[in-house]
């Protein structure tokens, strides 16, 4: 196995996911199988190939600096799990 349980857990932390112990082995082996599968890319010579981010070439798309109406605050907050005085309310913040 190329991917260890620790690797899987690290990537879970980056993903803000917590994988229960009972599922850890399965997620690890699936990630490992996936990475083994995509190994086939290694055989493609790409030293002189430029990466492609965009499906089709578009460039310099801009917007004029003109104010458009914002949402009504009620609409902005309507989906909030918790709110207070026109703010979105969140639990204690420990890290910065």
């Amino acid at each position: 196995m190329k991917v260890s349980k620790k690797d899987m857990e690290n990537v879970a932390v980056l993903s803000r996911l917590s994988i229960p112990e009972a599922e850890a082995a399965q997620y690890t082996s699936q990630l490992d199988a996936f990475l083994a599968y995509v190994e086939n890319l290694k055989s493609v010579p790409t030293d002189s190939v430029k990466p492609t981010t965009y499906a089709l070439p578009v460039q310099n798309v801009f917007r004029e600096d003109v104010v458009k109406p914002s949402l009504e605050r009620e609409a902005a907050l309507a989906n909030a799990p918790l709110r207070e005085d026109g703010y979105f309310k969140v639990p204690r913040i420990l890290e910065e």
Binding site: L35, K42, T46, V49, P51, T52
Partner: peptide, 13 residues
């Protein structure tokens, strides 16, 4: 992984 895939994407195009 990611950058490699972006390059192969170029070849597919």
């Amino acid at each position: 992984y990611y950058l490699k895939a972006l390059k192969v994407r170029t070849l597919i195009q």
